[in-house]
């Protein structure tokens, strides 16, 4: 977990970004430098409250002396480092990552930033041909590593598949999953230490899965919802949000956010109640909060029914 260490005074190192010199604390990432300089650096798998996995590669930059591009989210600065973000190679790789993801995934709920970057970098996912048929439920998880049937190229392969709804609290819409590993980290050592989900399979057929893809109620899941809190694409979302979206009444513009303190136990987590149409639709916590780092438990995340005193969203 990334923590801001205020206790020790860190040495400053000198880094040049696009010919401008910056003095930054040792241990900062290149992305920290870019952020403080006000650059709009795209990112998908990075989160301030998670260990970098540098998997998506959309944040890459050129670093003098390195042949491949370097993920700015993970690479720590070194004194004298020379970084370039304004090159063709950087622009091309960023565009292609967005384009390749767009060609394989449903990115429509990945947020305004992703939509803006895609336009800015000129991603054109449609050039890979028409979308191929979606997988049946469970089919993608059953593919055998090292084997795939040879494509004819007439359509493009995607990760499209039905939404998994196997519990009352949240849904898993893996047609949107970009395999950013954030949920796995949040469920594992970065927050929850529950390890209910992991990456299974290999290559393009890799999925986020429980053991033998059993339904969540049969897994170790404790419904803390921390995976939902970090998912960047809308692949994981509360049943409340899913149902509103399905019904066409999802209204992010009309949403209000109210801060409060969770009353279930003595820890006192800060909660942000997201309210649409007088109903709590999601509960989050700020990732820079010193206690929660954005992570909650089932009571804070989902225990809001008693507040609004209405029937749970799905009665089984």
């Amino acid at each position: 977990m990334t923590t801001v260490d205020l206790g020790t005074i860190r040495r400053l190192v000198s880094v040049t970004v696009d010919d401008v010199e910056h003095r930054v604390p040792e241990g900062a990432t290149i992305m920290d430098v870019l952020d403080s300089a006000g650059a709009d650096t795209p990112r998908l798998c990075q989160a301030p409250n998670l260990t970098p996995v540098n998997a998506c590669r959309v944040c890459v930059v050129e670093v003098e002396g390195s042949r491949p591009l370097v993920p700015s989210c993970a690479r720590r600065v070194e004194d004298g480092m020379v970084v370039r973000t304004d090159t063709d190679r950087v622009a091309h790789s960023r565009r292609m990552v967005l384009e390749l993801l767009g060609s394989a995934n449903d990115m429509s709920q990945a947020g305004d930033d992703v939509a803006r970057w895609s336009i800015e970098y000129g991603a054109d996912p449609e050039r890979y041909g028409p979308v191929g048929p979606p997988a049946a439920a469970g089919e993608r998880g059953n593919r055998h590593a090292g084997h795939h049937s040879a494509p004819d190229g007439e359509t493009r392969a995607t990760v499209a598949q039905p939404v998994t709804v196997d519990n009352d609290l949240y849904v898993r819409d893996y047609a949107r999953c970009i395999l950013c590993y954030k949920c796995v980290e949040a469920c594992g050592t970065d927050a929850q230490n529950t390890f209910a989900i992991a990456v299974a399979g290999r290559g393009f057929d890799a999925t986020i899965s429980t053991e033998f893809a059993v339904p969540l109620p049969d897994s170790a899941c404790v419904y803390c919802g921390n995976c939902i809190g970090v998912c960047p694409t809308g692949a994981l979302k509360s049943v409340a949000e899913h149902e509103r979206r399905e019904a066409g009444v999802w209204d992010p513009e009309g949403e209000t956010v109210t801060s409060t303190i969770c009353s279930f136990c003595g820890v006192g987590c800060t909660l942000e109640l997201h309210v649409q149409d007088n109903t709590i639709v999601n509960v989050t916590s700020p990732h820079d909060h010193s206690v929660t780092h954005g992570h909650l438990c089932i009571k804070g995340r989902f225990g809001f029914q008693h507040v609004q005193n209405v029937a749970p969203p799905r009665d089984r």
Partner: peptide, 28 residues
């Protein structure tokens, strides 16, 4: 191309999706 598509670990986007698109284009 099929070899790399099969053997990609799937961790990073350029290789995970790129190897699939490379194989499809060659097939066309």
């Amino acid at each position: 191309a099929g070899f790399f598509r099969d053997e990609s670990c799937g961790q990073c986007v350029p290789c995970r999706v790129g190897t699939v698109r490379q194989e499809e284009a060659l097939a066309r």
